[in-house]
Write a protein that binds this DNA or RNA. Structure first.
Lengths: 241, 241
DNA sequence: CGACACCTTGAAGAGGTTCAAGAAATGTGG
DNA sequence: CCACATTTCTTGAACCTCTTCAAGGTGTCG
């Protein structure tokens, strides 16, 4: 089930470097604490919001892992992103006042609920917060440009390499290993995100393992040769001998 | 060449329904006029900004047609969008204070230059403007979700159909025909945007023409059967007999 | 322990790419 | 204003990557 709300402060949250603007004085800090109206626990498999829901708030992930996905009328499904601690979800809902994608927890999670009206109100007063909100949205736009490049011009191996490197990089920024990770999503979800079928994802993992680039045991992945993965992403010509 | 600046007002611009928030009183309207520091003419083929440039301003297109594209280190190129009158460019630059893509005029164009600091300043005072900026960014995020769906799950015919329908729809919103359009971009640029090779774009156009869906003479396209195009986009099963 | 979801692997097939050549438009300079 | 160079577009044929279909294996959870 969803629900259970606790009242807490950003100012002593260990994720504040990720969520919050830098260089605030303590008065501003305290005001920002008020932005988080509550926290909310979401169980694995549950939706934080779904397409069509009224948009009220942005959500900052405290713990857990999410996917966002859109589904067109004909049942086509596209994972548009995977989100982890410190990242913001819900930006899609601002334009039409309704969410246009689903946010589904891939493991038990907890999010901070930040009513958007409150964010707007406060960012009129705190310039750093205003700019921070703009940066968060701009960052999402730039990220999506990268996904477009990936989907539009890369081959299966390049896509999966880029995906893995991106994941470990983000995990590393959160204090996790640079070379080991546990995938929280299925092959099918990876495939949807990368524009590939799950079989292709599986085969590509196997090929990487054969070539000694990674070690794969189900969802446990160890990156053995990050440079080779990087080369794969940056230099498409080097795998056609 | 670039340059040539004129001082003008949004309040009596015929594109204001596209660029500006609704429901402003005339005092607010006048203040917003100040946001546009100047206008700028860009000749066909020239860049309004390029990746790496310092970010200073957003740009609203007054006339003309643009493409935005990113290029990765290895020379891979991806068109991330085509922009027309009333649309805003430059949002990618906010997050890092530098642009991350190129904006290239596909025909002679004129844009309004809106210094971003000025936008931020004014949106602290005018709530409607603040929300408007948020909506513009959110709209771009949602648009890119759609492109991800297209690139991730559609086949060539579906992609081109979706592309054409999207173009005429936007042109129609600007008073142009619902069924006729002149493409301002090459087959290669369409292909880059859609994740296809130019030959595939050309072949798909030819197939649409054979099937009586469109009439194509180089860059002049007439849509003969919009419903068939829509069906193609929404119902992938109906062309595999 | 059994049911179910998830993953791997093989073989055949389709869709899109690549390479190549020629045609049609566009632009340039005399 | 025409001739020529250049860019853009079209079309064909061979090829390749990814998908589809199928079957079996592995892991997980009640």
């Amino acid at each position: 089930m969803i629900s259970q709300s606790i009242k807490v402060a950003c100012s002593n949250c260990n994720l504040r470097e990720l969520c919050m603007p830098l260089g605030l004085n303590s008065a501003e800090m305290q005001r920002i604490d008020e932005v988080v109206s509550q926290r909310k626990k979401i169980s694995k498999g549950d939706r934080l919001f779904r397409s069509g829901d009224k948009f009220n708030a942005l959500f900052a992930i405290r713990t857990g892992f999410f996917k966002t996905c859109i589904s067109s009328e004909d049942g086509r499904d596209q994972v548009t992103g995977f989100q982890m601690a410190g990242e913001i979800m819900g930006l899609d809902g601002i334009v039409s006042d309704h969410h246009t994608c689903d946010a589904i927890a891939l493991e038990d999670a907890e999010v901070c609920v930040m009513p958007f009206e409150h964010i707007e109100e406060l960012s009129r007063e705190i310039n750093a917060l205003q700019h921070h909100v703009h940066k968060i949205m701009s960052r999402e736009i730039v990220r999506e440009h990268g996904v477009m490049l990936l989907l539009g011009s890369m081959r299966a191996e390049e896509r999966l390499a880029a995906f893995l490197l991106n994941l470990v990089q983000r995990l590393h920024a959160r204090g996790f290993s640079q070379s080991e990770l546990v995938l929280r999503m299925t092959r099918e979800e990876i495939g949807s995100y990368l524009g590939l079928k799950l079989e292709t994802v599986s085969r590509t993992f196997s090929k990487f393992a054969e070539d000694g680039l990674v070690e794969v045991k189900q969802r446990h992945v160890r990156i053995l040769n990050p440079d080779a993965l990087k080369t794969l992403v940056n230099n498409p010509s080097c795998q056609t001998p």
